[in-house]
């Protein structure tokens, strides 16, 4: 993950649900309450902040909050992905689904989740490659459009790369025919 990678920065800003373990005064505005945050308050925090607070532990006490799985990686979504990766519109779940997934895999030891995500990515990548090749001649018609709208950011950049290759080869072929 590069320091200048805009997608990585945006992934950092994705909100994840957390539960506070400690009493935090003067931060009530995060939860629209006049008093401070009580232990057990559920709150959505950006990933960079939540990750730091979840891993921080001051001395003997426990971490200030507990991190939960974001809804885009919930059991329901994962089950749907396991059933048919192609039918899920990943973009609706989260624009940076894989990015968030990678960060969650770093924090939690979820081997099964990792396997499902990898399988999803590979299966959908094949489809992305097909659409990238056929995007110009329109032979797939409208049926591909819905799938392409549901691509999340990693898949979009993959589509762009694949399409770039196909397009430049096609451009060369056209040029040879003309010259």
């Amino acid at each position: 993950m590069s320091y200048y990678d805009v997608d990585a920065i945006l992934t950092d800003g994705e909100k994840v649900p957390c539960t506070f373990e400690l009493d935090v005064p003067y931060l009530g505005h995060l939860d629209n309450s006049t008093t401070g945050l009580k232990p057990g308050t559920a709150l959505s925090l950006p990933l960079w902040l939540a990750e730091m607070l979840a891993l921080a532990s001051t001395g003997d006490s426990k971490a200030p909050l507990i991190l939960n799985m974001p809804p885009c990686l919930s059991e329901r979504v994962i089950a749907a992905l396991r059933a048919d990766p192609r039918s899920v519109t990943l973009r609706e779940q989260n624009v940076h689904l894989y990015g968030v997934g990678v960060r969650m895999l770093d924090l939690f030891d979820e081997r099964e989740l990792g396997n499902t995500l990898r399988k999803t990515f590979v299966v959908r990548a094949g489809e992305v490659g097909l659409h990238a090749r056929k995007a110009d001649d329109g032979s797939l018609g409208g049926q591909g459009e819905e799938f392409l709208r549901g691509l999340e950011e990693w898949e979009r950049s993959l589509f762009r790369r694949a399409h770039e290759g196909v397009k430049s080869a096609k451009e060369w072929t056209e040029k040879v025919k003309k010259s």
Binding site: Y98, V102, A125, A132
Partner: peptide, 17 residues
């Protein structure tokens, strides 16, 4: 571009495992 992109993605997803 396509193949290296896929390999890169799989590598990232499998990095923690």
């Amino acid at each position: 571009g396509f193949v290296t992109g896929v390999v890169e993605g799989v590598r990232k997803l499998g990095a923690s495992a």
